[in-house]
Design a protein around this nucleic acid. Structure first.
Lengths: 140, 140
DNA sequence: ATCCTAACTGATACTCGGTATCGTTAGCCG
DNA sequence: CGGCTAACGATACCGAGTATCAGTTAGGAT
């Protein structure tokens, strides 16, 4: 693994601040997809001295270095989930916000097939699927 | 086919207004994914008497009756494309905005497989893929 | 240990896509 | 034609995300 909260030459040094640790651990402890606003509200509850902008900035950073993944939420909201810094695909439940990893091979087969048949390069980052997991009522 | 611009009992009568025809034809003539704002700007150029809210309302309506499809744009923007009122999946090029239909069978196989293996009901509406088509430089 | 500097922060103002409201306009059925 | 009411345009509003900026602080240099 090459990244982390403290890194790296080409973009300038990064600093491990308490706010960043707070955001990262809050995201990790959530254990499901959460919105930036949700995370901010939770963090404010415990520690009033953290700014809204900082939460957005830190989430961007976490995504950039691969410690979080960003999803499209329903109403123009970004949702985030903590994840290992290797690429994989997700099933995202629209009801409970839970995520499940998908077998890469399955999806990669589709990607190859699509590429072969349509001359189209899929953007892996967006290959996440949305639906309802079995333990949720089909609310909506 | 059961829907159209003029329909239907259970939700009350719908009216075929000039604005709706304008929006629908503008979307159809675009021949690619467009944002509501883009569509609004184009329509205003030709006909100053059309409201922003009407464009949003009409696009919602078109999606509802199946004459348009909504995609997640990049920065919390909805993108729309005109389409036949039957369900199918798309490849959406992030560079040129073009769309290509995907063979349903291919995707349905993945859906079935995912459902069998993960107890997860995929929401068909969101099964659109984003990437770069072969005729676009990999800008970004 | 302390100093220095630039990365980082919180507060706040802003942008902008989408929605709600409301008085007016105009389909469509009789 | 006349009336009912869906749909309209203008405008105010909302809320997520971004930009700005003066103050703060991590962390390497001394």
């Amino acid at each position: 693994m090459t990244g982390g909260l403290v890194a790296q030459s080409s973009v300038g040094p990064r600093r491990l601040t308490t706010q960043r640790q707070l955001v990262a651990s809050a995201l990790h402890e959530a254990g499901r997809t959460v919105s930036a606003a949700e995370l901010f509200a939770g963090l404010r509850g415990n520690n009033p001295r953290i700014g809204r902008a900082t939460v957005f900035r830190t989430l961007d950073l976490l995504v950039e270095i691969g410690l979080a993944q960003r999803f499209e939420g329903d109403g123009h909201v970004y949702l985030y989930t903590s994840c290992a810094p290797i690429h994989h695909h997700h099933l995202v439940c629209r009801v409970c916000g839970g995520t499940t990893d998908i077998d890469d091979a399955e999806v990669d087969a589709l990607i190859r097939s699509v590429h072969r048949r349509h001359d189209f390069v899929l953007d892996h980052a967006s290959l996440d699927f949305y639906g309802t997991c079995s333990s949720c009522p089909a609310a909506k």
